[in-house]
Design a protein around this nucleic acid. Structure first.
Length: 474
DNA sequence: AGCCGGTTCTG
DNA sequence: AGAACCGGC
């Protein structure tokens, strides 16, 4: 008569629907987490993310142990094997009820559905919780009960739902018994763990809450003005915690509600809450339009685009030697730290998909393979936005000029100089356009493509696609 | 969450 | 000459 909480993308004890529900029963509770390393590899998990997840799984096991809940770390290769591991655990531990919070990728949904079926045959009850968003998927619909595919109207309904419902956080679970000895994953058994860059954020749920509170106590007031300047470090840096569920979107929304609004902070607060809405938006898109997690474009007609083959241009982009300073600085930040500023994600994604005209899926996968905060819904949404293949995407003719973007958002070139030492000695605006001084600094490459020409070419290809579709429609 | 080229306004 | 504005992509 034991309840099992299966932790996946929700490595927290606070505000956790599945954990709270399990602890409300009178029966004993155990927990599990599946180490599906082969599946992680297939989903392009980065070493940085693997390390963050392992560290937080261990921290979670400790926190649960204090509540008298033993964590079982299960070995599996892929999701299919994880079903077997779960079923074995249920049998060995006399589990009668399994609780977990939903995930929305197609593989995850298929896994959960099959598991529920198989457990049903053995008289184990499965309880699923819709816990990943501030507003649960399925709750933000148009007047015609359809999902939104444009952000602005989505966000209006999203905000109204929260204002009306005022969702409260799930109560912290009470101890289920005397403390137990925590189990622990040995990181040396985990592929990739020791290849991770130094941790970007401190480990543990408490550290995540500290960062959230510190951000909302002051920096949020300058968020709207300063967040777009990568040299300023003016973002919350909560994405690593959100991506692995150490913090929930609902906790972020609730914490923002608690901040006394002043003239000084209200714009920044609203701007930041809007980013939580973006996260929810892309999760809702993933839920309603599963094709986006099956390597398909949201706009099917864009599947006909003839992307350039992945050549040395792609390698140069990955390694940060495209010859465009802001692009190279951004890619090196990603490679060195496992994180990239959001403005720079847009600039580098636009450059790959429009100037180099390389398939956005390759960029999406590469980002995933490096990012500590790699999260399917947001990463896919962002890439399809940049490539003009997605919901509410940038119109195909709205192509960033990476030099102009660099000049606007890194006006002193501080960020470029931090990550591209070859350019550090250049004075003033030359750091954005090193080719103008006549001779490139030693070791810095010439541009892969002409920005003006490649922009024209990209627009022409999208224009041709549009005309083909008009002909087909006639 | 644009950029570009052309035109008009301004000092 | 440079800012400010605009239509088209």
């Amino acid at each position: 008569m034991t309840h099992l909480v299966w932790f996946r993308n929700d490595l927290r004890t606070a505000d956790n629907a599945a954990l709270t529900a399990a602890c409300q029963s009178d029966q004993p509770v155990i927990a599990c987490f599946v180490l599906a390393q082969e599946q992680w590899r297939m989903h392009d998990w980065s070493p940085a993310r693997i390390r963050l997840v392992i560290d937080h799984a261990n921290a979670l096991a400790e926190a649960l142990a204090k509540l008298g809940i033993a964590m079982h770390f299960l070995e599996a290769q892929r999701f299919d094997d994880s079903q077997d591991a779960l079923i074995r655990l249920c049998r060995d531990q006399s589990v009668t009820t399994v609780h977990f919070n939903e995930e929305y990728g197609v593989n995850e949904r298929r896994r959960d559905k099959q598991l529920a079926q198989r457990l049903g045959e053995t008289d184990v009850t499965v309880h699923k919780y819709r816990d990943q968003c501030a507003v649960p998927v399925g709750q933000v619909l148009t007047g015609q009960n359809q999902p939104y595919s444009v952000f602005t109207p989505f966000s209006r309904t999203w905000r109204r739902w929260l204002d009306d419902q005022q969702p409260t956080l799930y109560p912290q679970p009470a101890a289920k018994g005397d403390p137990v000895t925590p189990s622990r994953i040995d990181p040396t058994t985990i592929a990739g763990y020791d290849q991770a860059p130094p941790p970007l954020v401190a480990t543990g749920e408490a550290a995540a809450h500290d960062r959230l509170e510190e951000f909302l106590a002051d920096p949020v007031a300058h968020y709207k003005q300063q967040r777009d300047f990568p040299a300023k470090d003016a973002t919350s840096l909560l994405s690593p915690y959100l991506a692995s569920g150490i913090l929930s979107g609902r906790q972020c929304w609730a914490a923002a509600q608690q901040v006394p609004a002043t003239a000084a902070n209200q714009e920044g607060l609203a701007c930041w809450v809007n980013e939580i809405a973006w996260r929810d938006f892309y999760i809702h898109i993933l839920y309603h339009f599963p094709r986006v997690s099956m390597n398909r474009a949201f706009k099917p007609e864009t599947e006909a685009l003839d992307w350039n083959p992945s050549t040395e241009h792609f390698e140069a982009w990955k390694e940060g030697r495209t010859g465009v300073p802001i692009v190279d600085a951004a890619m090196r930040q990603l490679n060195q730290t496992g994180w990239m500023h959001n403005r720079l994600r847009m600039i580098t994604a636009m450059y790959l998909s429009k100037n180099l005209f390389i398939d956005w899926r390759l960029g999406e996968a590469y980002f995933m393979s490096q990012l500590v905060d790699g999260f399917l819904a947001s990463n896919n949404g962002g890439w399809q936005w940049s490539a003009s293949t997605g919901t509410d995407a940038a119109p195909y003719f709205r192509i960033f000029n990476p030099v102009t973007q660099g000049e606007r958002f890194d006006p002193n070139g501080d960020f470029i100089r931090r990550y591209v030492p070859e350019l550090a000695a250049l004075e003033g605006d030359a750091v954005h356009q090193p080719w103008r001084s006549g001779k490139l600094p030693k070791g810095y490459p010439r541009q892969l493509v002409d920005l003006k020409e490649s922009r024209k070419e990209a627009i022409a290809r999208f224009q041709a696609l549009k005309e083909e579709n008009q002909v087909a429609a006639d």
